[in-house]
Protein backbone atom coordinates (compact mmCIF):
# COMPACT_ATOMS: atom_id res chain seq x y z
CA UNK A 1 0.00 0.00 0.00
CA UNK A 2 1.06 3.52 -0.63
CA UNK A 3 -0.51 4.75 2.58
CA UNK A 4 2.84 5.94 3.88
CA UNK A 5 2.45 9.10 1.90
CA UNK A 6 -1.10 10.08 2.82
CA UNK A 7 -1.05 12.43 5.80
CA UNK A 8 -2.77 11.28 8.97
CA UNK A 9 -2.63 14.81 10.35
CA UNK A 10 -2.61 18.06 8.43
CA UNK A 11 -2.32 21.33 10.30
CA UNK A 12 -2.74 24.56 8.41
CA UNK A 13 -2.62 28.21 9.41
CA UNK A 14 -2.90 27.26 13.07
CA UNK A 15 -2.95 30.16 15.52
CA UNK A 16 -3.46 30.35 19.25
CA UNK A 17 -3.49 33.75 20.93
CA UNK A 18 -3.89 34.34 24.63
CA UNK A 19 -4.84 37.47 26.56
CA UNK A 20 -6.63 39.27 23.72
CA UNK A 21 -3.91 38.47 21.19
CA UNK A 22 -1.12 39.92 23.33
CA UNK A 23 0.48 36.48 23.64
CA UNK A 24 0.92 34.73 20.32
CA UNK A 25 1.72 31.24 21.57
CA UNK A 26 1.23 29.67 18.14
CA UNK A 27 1.38 32.00 15.18
CA UNK A 28 0.39 30.62 11.78
CA UNK A 29 1.80 27.12 11.86
CA UNK A 30 1.35 24.49 9.15
CA UNK A 31 2.70 20.96 8.93
CA UNK A 32 1.67 17.41 8.14
CA UNK A 33 2.39 14.04 9.68
CA UNK A 34 2.31 11.06 7.37
CA UNK A 35 0.96 7.67 8.22
CA UNK A 36 3.51 5.77 10.32
CA UNK A 37 5.86 8.74 10.46
CA UNK A 38 7.41 10.45 13.46
CA UNK A 39 7.61 14.21 13.21
CA UNK A 40 9.91 15.89 15.69
CA UNK A 41 9.12 19.36 16.96
CA UNK A 42 11.96 21.27 18.61
CA UNK A 43 12.28 24.71 20.02
CA UNK A 44 13.23 26.60 23.12
CA UNK A 45 11.07 26.86 26.21
CA UNK A 46 7.94 28.94 25.67
CA UNK A 47 8.02 28.82 21.87
CA UNK A 48 4.58 27.19 21.71
CA UNK A 49 5.27 23.47 21.40
CA UNK A 50 2.91 22.34 24.15
CA UNK A 51 0.24 24.67 22.86
CA UNK A 52 0.35 22.88 19.50
CA UNK A 53 0.03 19.54 21.33
CA UNK A 54 -2.97 20.79 23.32
CA UNK A 55 -4.63 22.09 20.15
CA UNK A 56 -4.23 18.76 18.39
CA UNK A 57 -5.74 16.77 21.27
CA UNK A 58 -8.47 19.42 21.64
CA UNK A 59 -7.58 20.48 25.16
CA UNK A 60 -7.58 23.99 23.69
CA UNK A 61 -9.47 25.59 20.84
CA UNK A 62 -7.49 27.26 18.07
CA UNK A 63 -7.90 31.01 17.52
CA UNK A 64 -7.60 30.34 13.83
CA UNK A 65 -6.62 27.57 11.47
CA UNK A 66 -7.51 23.98 10.79
CA UNK A 67 -6.45 20.62 12.15
CA UNK A 68 -7.40 17.77 9.85
CA UNK A 69 -7.19 14.18 11.05
CA UNK A 70 -7.63 11.79 8.14
CA UNK A 71 -8.85 14.84 6.21
CA UNK A 72 -11.54 15.49 8.79
CA UNK A 73 -11.83 18.54 10.98
CA UNK A 74 -12.47 16.94 14.38
CA UNK A 75 -13.95 20.11 15.86
CA UNK A 76 -16.83 20.03 13.40
CA UNK A 77 -17.88 16.44 14.09
CA UNK A 78 -21.16 15.67 15.81
CA UNK A 79 -21.13 14.39 19.36
CA UNK A 80 -21.24 10.73 18.48
CA UNK A 81 -18.43 10.84 15.91
CA UNK A 82 -16.38 13.01 18.25
CA UNK A 83 -16.72 10.36 20.93
CA UNK A 84 -15.66 7.63 18.51
CA UNK A 85 -12.65 9.60 17.35
CA UNK A 86 -11.51 10.48 20.87
CA UNK A 87 -9.45 7.33 21.22
CA UNK A 88 -7.51 7.78 18.02
CA UNK A 89 -5.19 10.55 19.18
CA UNK A 90 -3.57 10.05 22.58
CA UNK A 91 -0.98 12.01 24.46
CA UNK A 92 1.99 11.41 26.72
CA UNK A 93 2.83 14.22 29.10
CA UNK A 94 6.06 15.84 30.15
CA UNK A 95 5.60 15.58 33.91
CA UNK A 96 5.09 11.91 34.79
CA UNK A 97 4.40 12.84 38.41
CA UNK A 98 1.15 14.66 37.78
CA UNK A 99 0.06 12.42 34.93
CA UNK A 100 -1.23 9.65 37.21
CA UNK A 101 -4.05 10.04 39.70
CA UNK A 102 -2.52 9.38 43.15
CA UNK A 103 -5.79 7.80 44.34
CA UNK A 104 -6.19 5.28 41.54
CA UNK A 105 -4.40 1.99 41.12
CA UNK A 106 -2.50 1.57 37.88
CA UNK A 107 -4.95 -1.14 36.84
CA UNK A 108 -7.95 1.13 37.31
CA UNK A 109 -6.28 4.04 35.54
CA UNK A 110 -5.77 1.87 32.45
CA UNK A 111 -9.02 -0.07 32.74
CA UNK A 112 -11.58 2.75 33.01
CA UNK A 113 -11.03 4.39 29.60
CA UNK A 114 -10.84 0.99 27.88
CA UNK A 115 -14.20 -0.08 29.30
CA UNK A 116 -15.73 3.34 28.69
CA UNK A 117 -14.87 3.14 25.01
CA UNK A 118 -15.63 -0.58 24.83
CA UNK A 119 -12.15 -1.26 23.53
CA UNK A 120 -12.36 -4.72 25.04
CA UNK A 121 -14.78 -6.98 26.87
CA UNK A 122 -15.06 -6.86 30.63
CA UNK A 123 -13.81 -10.42 30.91
CA UNK A 124 -10.81 -9.65 28.72
CA UNK A 125 -9.74 -6.44 30.39
CA UNK A 126 -7.49 -8.05 32.98
CA UNK A 127 -5.56 -9.92 30.33
CA UNK A 128 -5.33 -6.81 28.19
CA UNK A 129 -3.85 -4.75 31.04
CA UNK A 130 -1.26 -7.45 31.68
CA UNK A 131 -0.38 -7.42 28.00
CA UNK A 132 0.04 -3.63 28.01
CA UNK A 133 2.16 -3.67 31.18
CA UNK A 134 4.36 -6.31 29.64
CA UNK A 135 4.63 -4.28 26.44
CA UNK A 136 6.01 -1.27 28.33
CA UNK A 137 8.25 -3.43 30.51
CA UNK A 138 6.46 -3.35 33.85
CA UNK A 139 5.78 -6.35 36.11
CA UNK A 140 2.25 -7.73 36.35
CA UNK A 141 1.91 -6.80 40.00
CA UNK A 142 2.06 -3.10 39.06
CA UNK A 143 -1.65 -3.37 38.43
CA UNK A 144 -2.76 -3.17 42.06
CA UNK A 145 -0.24 -0.54 43.08
CA UNK A 146 -0.59 3.20 43.44
CA UNK A 147 1.50 5.77 41.53
CA UNK A 148 3.58 6.62 44.62
CA UNK A 149 5.26 3.21 44.34
CA UNK A 150 6.79 4.09 40.98
CA UNK A 151 9.75 6.14 39.79
CA UNK A 152 9.52 8.83 37.12
CA UNK A 153 10.62 6.47 34.38
CA UNK A 154 8.17 3.79 35.48
CA UNK A 155 5.36 6.32 35.59
CA UNK A 156 6.16 7.36 32.07
CA UNK A 157 5.90 3.69 31.06
CA UNK A 158 2.48 3.56 32.73
CA UNK A 159 1.48 6.71 30.86
CA UNK A 160 2.52 5.05 27.61
CA UNK A 161 0.55 1.90 28.47
CA UNK A 162 -2.52 4.00 29.26
CA UNK A 163 -2.23 5.89 25.97
CA UNK A 164 -1.74 2.67 23.99
CA UNK A 165 -4.68 0.96 25.69
CA UNK A 166 -7.06 2.98 23.52
CA UNK A 167 -5.35 1.74 20.34
CA UNK A 168 -4.51 5.22 19.03
CA UNK A 169 -3.31 5.92 15.51
CA UNK A 170 -1.49 9.10 16.43
CA UNK A 171 0.56 9.57 19.57
CA UNK A 172 1.46 13.06 20.78
CA UNK A 173 4.53 12.97 23.01
CA UNK A 174 5.10 16.31 24.75
CA UNK A 175 8.69 16.18 26.02
CA UNK A 176 8.17 12.68 27.43
CA UNK A 177 11.76 12.36 28.67
CA UNK A 178 12.66 15.93 29.70
CA UNK A 179 11.70 15.35 33.32
CA UNK A 180 13.65 12.10 33.60
CA UNK A 181 17.20 11.26 34.62
CA UNK A 182 19.54 11.12 31.64
CA UNK A 183 20.16 7.41 32.29
CA UNK A 184 16.41 6.72 32.07
CA UNK A 185 15.81 8.93 29.03
CA UNK A 186 17.38 6.47 26.60
CA UNK A 187 15.26 3.59 27.93
CA UNK A 188 12.02 5.48 27.43
CA UNK A 189 13.11 6.74 24.01
CA UNK A 190 13.95 3.21 22.92
CA UNK A 191 10.62 1.97 24.22
CA UNK A 192 8.76 4.62 22.24
CA UNK A 193 10.78 3.87 19.13
CA UNK A 194 10.15 0.13 19.37
CA UNK A 195 6.46 0.59 20.00
CA UNK A 196 6.17 3.07 17.16
CA UNK A 197 7.68 0.52 14.77
CA UNK A 198 5.73 -2.46 16.07
CA UNK A 199 2.35 -0.76 15.97
CA UNK A 200 3.25 1.47 12.99
CA UNK A 201 2.05 4.45 14.99
CA UNK A 202 2.24 7.97 13.71
CA UNK A 203 3.89 10.27 16.21
CA UNK A 204 4.46 13.91 17.02
CA UNK A 205 7.50 14.02 19.24
CA UNK A 206 8.15 17.29 21.05
CA UNK A 207 11.47 18.12 22.64
CA UNK A 208 13.66 21.10 23.35
CA UNK A 209 16.98 19.59 22.37
CA UNK A 210 17.92 18.29 18.93
CA UNK A 211 19.80 15.21 20.09
CA UNK A 212 16.74 13.53 21.62
CA UNK A 213 14.39 14.58 18.84
CA UNK A 214 16.82 13.56 16.13
CA UNK A 215 17.12 10.07 17.59
CA UNK A 216 13.45 9.27 17.23
CA UNK A 217 12.18 11.41 14.35
CA UNK A 218 11.96 10.87 10.64
CA UNK A 219 11.44 14.54 10.00
CA UNK A 220 12.03 17.56 12.22
CA UNK A 221 10.27 20.90 12.42
CA UNK A 222 12.11 23.69 14.22
CA UNK A 223 9.96 26.15 16.07
CA UNK A 224 10.89 29.63 17.15
CA UNK A 225 8.60 32.15 18.87
CA UNK A 226 5.34 30.58 17.78
CA UNK A 227 6.36 29.86 14.18
CA UNK A 228 7.93 26.92 12.39
CA UNK A 229 11.12 28.37 10.95
CA UNK A 230 12.49 25.26 9.29
CA UNK A 231 11.33 21.78 8.44
CA UNK A 232 13.52 19.05 7.00
CA UNK A 233 14.41 15.41 6.93
CA UNK A 234 16.06 14.41 10.19
CA UNK A 235 19.52 14.02 8.65
CA UNK A 236 19.27 16.80 6.13
CA UNK A 237 18.57 19.23 8.92
CA UNK A 238 22.02 18.57 10.37
CA UNK A 239 23.97 18.50 7.15
CA UNK A 240 22.35 21.58 5.75
CA UNK A 241 20.67 23.76 8.38
CA UNK A 242 18.88 26.72 6.84
CA UNK A 243 17.87 28.93 9.72
CA UNK A 244 20.22 30.59 12.20
CA UNK A 245 18.22 29.27 15.11
CA UNK A 246 18.67 25.71 13.83
CA UNK A 247 22.41 26.27 13.72
CA UNK A 248 22.31 27.45 17.34
CA UNK A 249 20.40 24.32 18.30
CA UNK A 250 22.89 22.08 16.52
CA UNK A 251 25.91 23.76 18.08
CA UNK A 252 24.41 23.36 21.52
CA UNK A 253 24.43 19.55 21.29
CA UNK A 254 27.21 18.05 23.37
CA UNK A 255 29.46 16.04 21.06
CA UNK A 256 28.78 12.74 22.79
CA UNK A 257 26.43 11.26 20.28
CA UNK A 258 28.70 9.57 17.71
CA UNK A 259 26.14 9.54 14.89
CA UNK A 260 25.54 13.26 15.27
CA UNK A 261 29.25 13.95 15.53
CA UNK A 262 29.86 12.20 12.24
CA UNK A 263 27.08 14.07 10.56
CA UNK A 264 28.40 17.36 11.84
CA UNK A 265 31.93 16.63 10.64
CA UNK A 266 30.67 15.75 7.21
Amino acid sequence: MNEINSPILAVSGLKKYYNNSSIRAVDDVSFTINQGETLGLVGESGCGKSTIAKLIVQLEKPSEGKILFHNQDLSTLNKEDKHKNKTKIQMIFQDPYSSLNPRKTIGDAIKDPMLYHQICEKEEVHKEILRLLDLVGLPANSMDRYPKDFSGGQRQRIGIARALSLKPELLICDEPVSALDVSIQAQILNLLKTIQKELSLSMLFIGHGLSVVHYISDRIAVMYQGKIVEEADSIALFTNPGHDYTKTLISSIPILDPTLRNIRKA
Partner: peptide, 26 residues
Protein backbone atom coordinates in the same frame (compact mmCIF):
# COMPACT_ATOMS: atom_id res chain seq x y z
CA UNK B 1 -4.81 21.41 35.71
CA UNK B 2 -3.15 18.09 36.59
CA UNK B 3 -2.06 15.91 33.73
CA UNK B 4 -4.18 12.98 34.85
CA UNK B 5 -7.29 15.10 34.40
CA UNK B 6 -6.03 16.20 30.99
CA UNK B 7 -5.28 12.59 30.09
CA UNK B 8 -8.87 11.69 30.96
CA UNK B 9 -10.12 14.54 28.79
CA UNK B 10 -7.91 13.46 25.91
CA UNK B 11 -9.30 9.95 26.35
CA UNK B 12 -12.78 11.47 25.97
CA UNK B 13 -14.02 10.42 29.42
CA UNK B 14 -17.35 11.89 30.54
CA UNK B 15 -17.57 14.97 32.76
CA UNK B 16 -19.17 12.81 35.43
CA UNK B 17 -16.22 10.42 35.38
CA UNK B 18 -13.67 13.22 35.57
CA UNK B 19 -15.55 14.99 38.36
CA UNK B 20 -16.35 12.01 40.55
CA UNK B 21 -13.57 9.56 39.77
CA UNK B 22 -10.57 11.78 39.06
CA UNK B 23 -11.19 15.02 40.97
CA UNK B 24 -13.44 14.25 43.93
CA UNK B 25 -11.24 11.48 45.45
CA UNK B 26 -8.39 13.98 45.57
Amino acid sequence: EKNYVKASKVAGMSHAYILFSEILPN
